[in-house]
Amino acid sequence: MKVTKIEALEKIANDIRINIIKTVYNAGSGHPGGSLSCADILTVLYFNQMNINPQDPKAEGRDRFVLSKGHCSPALYSTLARRGYFREEDLKGFRKINSNLQGHPDMNKVPGVDMTTGSLGQGLSAANGMAISSKMDSMGYRVYCLLGDGEIQEGQVWEAAMTSSKYKLDNLCVIVDNNNLQIDGDIKSVKGLNKIEQKFESFGFNVISIDGNNIEQLIDGFDRAKMTKGRPTAIIAKTVKGKGVSFMENNVVWHGMAPKEEEYKLAINELESNGK
């Protein structure tokens, strides 16, 4: 049976989810919920959209990715390893003293990490700097920046949004991982932003709303972003926190907790049974 492009990407996203669970379990800490929610977004970017070469991770003309929600490093590391930037074996070192895989991404330690992040709200500003630079030097590369929907409570995100718009950064694509949960609970009850789409629209973005756990919709969204001229794009990706592991889905306790052995086995069984 011929495997379609979509099915192949779904399989990769599932592999990445398995590695997210393994990585967090081995570390005994980390952030599985938000990592699982953005696994499909990262899969489509790194395996379908971005102009990159794992053998030349610092190539000047490469597309850039900024994980502004840096705590979802297990998703980024699992994606980079799956794409061939480093050995999947290295994921076992995550958060450990002799490893390069820090709790939050460090651009000087990990090949493929384009920006050091961790303190929320700063990634979009850095992405803007890269995108303006691309335009100044007619390099033609695109810049992607993934924000958390809790993260956009940080005021700097909106300072940066004004900058993206001022410089008409049509080579910039923001993705909001809209899983509706943050550490203290439901985003609406903590401090809701209301109408994320309208916020970005009023800041001058081309806004695209999609199911962020749907590979086909993600490809379509990124393709539409590429065709947009004269303004930046914000993809509001509706996702499920903990996606793929039923007992983690929409359950905020999995924001920043590693599974215990029993939970780990359950999660891996569930993910490995996918597609069989």
């Binding site: 000047e60 500003s125 850095a126 700097g129 995108a131 700097q156 004004m162």
Partner: peptide, 24 residues
Amino acid sequence: RFFDMGISEQDMMSTAAGFATTGK
């Protein structure tokens, strides 16, 4: 080569960081 970031110093610093990653 001049960028007026408006009254947003935090954005200015992180944008400068992004510029620096590209060799500026």
